[in-house]
Design a protein around this nucleic acid. Structure first.
Lengths: 219, 219
DNA sequence: TAGCCTGACTTACGTCGTAAGAATCGTCAA
DNA sequence: TTGACGATTCTTACGACGTAAGTCAGGCTA
């Protein structure tokens, strides 16, 4: 590729590199994302990318931050004055899940890397202030934020199952349904036929509500 | 290495390969684990390992199953006859967290790969039967098992933070404490000084109890 | 016009997973 | 005792990876 001669502009920017990386990830999956292929997708040699990103890890970190911003984008501003905090946190949980499911390729990254982008810090500070104003002790407010975040990531990881590009490894429950002996596993078999307990939407919604109600009811 | 000539036994076995892989992972971290290095640790060329494992992915899947077995090992047998199911699930949550923290290198693997080892299926079936006998609807029993498992994985991922070998990427909250402006982030600053809301043990225990109590209280 | 900066390319090194096949061993039948 | 055989290990090789180091052209500023 890239008949362009050295010095000829390709119109690149840090922004465009991250955009292309996220697109590539969504389409081909994490294992397929390499600096060479990403460069090719941008019509550029791999090393050119190192003008916009110090290394691949930083690129991946940036992708996580980007998806987090997407998750935050649609959220109501928590009003620190007063008001119920439970709806904010519920909205956060569902928005985060939606953003992660829309970009499942970054899920393993979001799970492994601490996210402390300025955006995330600002949002946390806002929630803490709001919950505190509503009478929640600071430590418990921090617990709520982290429990909601970690549960959402954990649950969405399981939901997304094998991310695209990850095929070929261990099959999920449905894929090995025929290997499950109904005599030895009557309950699992019943689940696979009735689909009871396999509704991710319902499971997530219910668990988040239980958590929030539980924290709200603490003395 | 390996002055051994072809055919000279190295005393290898599938078992020993997995043992060595888990040891290597615990000591050097996931990114450092390569077939060549694992071979070297066993005094053997890389390709020799392919006699015991079809490919690297299968090796990693096996490591996840292995840690799961460790998590299951100390559990009480759920008695399907009757009795309270909440203690079983609480014990499962804490045992799983303990096993994952003891082998943080497999955490990213456990998070990404569906676990359906015979051991895990047997355990699930046991729990489902027990909860059902205690009057929990099958679908809800499945929800409880999965919610506890996914929350534990999500929370432990955050707790383990960057696994060994993963250093050098985004810093966690503590590591960038000095970058946090107390004026802009008063609550986060207070958390960093008082450590309120940073006790993982307490946070995990409380959240698990809230979840279990919440499910137990459902009509 | 001279020079430098920017953004792109080229080359190269060491590492990775693994395909294909050769070499050597222990074992057992003839 | 010999021969063959399966199990185990090593050798070689290929293509892809991340990235260090250096090169080169075009545009901006002096």
């Amino acid at each position: 590729m890239a008949v362009r001669r050295a010095g000829a502009k390709a119109g690149l920017s840090r922004e465009r590199v991250f955009d292309a990386a996220l697109d590539y990830l969504d389409e081909h999956g994490l294992p397929a994302l390499s600096m060479r292929k990403l460069g090719a997708a941008l019509g550029v040699e791999a090393m050119t990318l190192y003008h916009y990103v110090p290394n691949k890890d930083a690129l991946l970190d940036g992708l996580v931050d980007r998806v987090m911003e997407i998750a935050f984008a649609g959220l109501d501003e928590p009003d620190p004055g007063s008001g119920p905090w439970v709806p904010w946190m519920r909205q956060f949980a569902h928005s985060l899940r939606g953003a992660l499911l829309a970009h499942p390729g970054v899920l393993p990254l979001a799970a492994t890397r601490p996210v402390n982008s300025p955006e995330a810090l600002r949002m946390s500070e806002r929630w803490l202030a709001g919950m505190r104003a509503a009478g929640v002790p600071l430590g418990r407010a921090m617990d709520v934020v982290n429990v909601i975040a970690t549960f959402t990531i954990g649950h969405t990881l399981a939901e997304a199952g094998e991310t695209p590009g990850h095929e070929g490894t261990e099959p999920n429950l449905d894929e090995r349904a025929d290997e499950i002996d109904p005599a030895e596993f009557p309950n699992l078999t019943e689940i696979l036929t009735t689909r009871a307990g396999l509704d991710f939407d319902h499971r997530f919604t219910e668990a988040v509500d239980i958590l929030l109600a539980g924290y709200a009811a603490l003395p």
